[in-house]
Design a binder for these strands. Structure first.
Lengths: 130, 130, 130, 130
DNA sequence: GTGGTCTAGACCACC
DNA sequence: GTGGTCTAGACCACG
């Protein structure tokens, strides 16, 4: 069962965080077609937010055609976002974690790592576009 | 001169995006003590947002003691966030860009890369905490 | 300015009725790119429903990429659904109204006309599919 | 035997869709006094919904005095909604299908046809009322 | 003032 | 019990 976390200090609307975490799960193969999402009540118990906020996230995913709510049963995945590249994730993940470890050893804290990553990715995308 | 970008679709308040980009610049050594931030007018010309929004971002940074507004002149950096680890950034950045390149070659699109990175980092932090 | 109507007896959720009427307007050329939708408050004054219900309709349209809400200004059309067939609408509309008139003269009430239309259209779609 | 269809995406409660389709049948002469409706089990096999939902639709029709449930046997039509205009339906239907065909030839898709029909009918009723 | 979001509580439809 | 919807009231970000 996928687990949700909500950072109230991030400035990102909780319903967006929930929806994004589902999309990430679909992309990483953690969630697959037919899987059931936690019920609204279960999410509420998990992260202490209002049921309507969870419903809003699920409704948005439903409009995107990713999940389907079935009254009285729950909400289920109807489409995955995982591509053929999924097989490569394991190796990439290992390399990335190794990089993270080296950054930590070099004395970078989480905020610095975030800054470095976001900056590098932004530049790379610019290059890709150019 | 630091450049700002604002993603209106991200769901993050524009003033937060501006402030965060300044903090990143301070952390990465792109901005240093004494440097002048773009004036409100310059930012407005750069990213097409309301001047009040820019002022709000600068005010927040001033409250954090990172910058100082001098009436009629501009806003200046008073404190940096770059640590001793700054020297290691160049090498880390190169390795990270290489990783990014390998992810692209493996067929991952931006969204998948985001998902992978966020997931790996979250796990790593959990481990660190544990 | 497009006008909304909400039938509370139809069994269709009001927010769906609002959204559908906007889509129809986009399809019939009544609404075009750049046009402003009524503000939430104006709609509330028009049809006496809760502001949140209107927001829900507009948000759904925004997720579909049809409109864009700009804080402090209003909600604006960003994409039309009108196709090249738009030019033919005038003539088709006239013929359809003539048919309606003949049905009325033959003694059909609104309910019978609805039944006849829905039945004919359903059959026609089946044939089209087959 | 009348056939039912249920659109789960329409936002209309399934029990309303079933009941409405029976009323349409009564209006178009497809169902007549004495005819038996499909049993709940048959409907369930036809459209894959919960038996309770079918029962609710039949109960509503019974309250309207249109059908009568006979325990252990089935549900039977007790009143028709077809008027004297029924004789004219054939010709009207043919003309309507011809109109539909011309709309298709003009390049309109189903959604555009829906928009045009609903808009024209709404206007016509307004005129009639006025 | 406008849209965006969250909370709280309620009712309905479906299983 | 589960999701879907509406109402009411509140706060925030933006212009």
């Amino acid at each position: 069962m996928i687990e949700f976390r909500v950072e109230t200090t991030s400035g990102i609307a909780p319903y967006r965080q929930i929806a994004e975490q589902v999309r990430h799960g679909l992309r990483l193969g953690i969630l697959d077609v037919g899987d059931q999402l936690p019920t609204v009540k279960e999410v509420v118990a998990m992260v202490a937010i209002n049921p309507n906020t969870v419903s809003k996230a699920y409704r948005e995913l439903e409009l995107e055609g990713l999940v389907e709510g079935r009254a009285g049963i729950g909400t289920f995945v109807t489409r995955t976002l995982a591509g053929p590249s999924l097989a490569a994730h394991g190796e990439l993940r290992r390399t990335l974690l190794a990089w993270l470890e080296s950054a930590r050893r070099a004395g970078l804290d989480d905020a610095s790592i975030d800054a470095l990553v976001e900056h590098a990715f932004h530049d790379a995308r610019q290059d890709g576009v150019a």
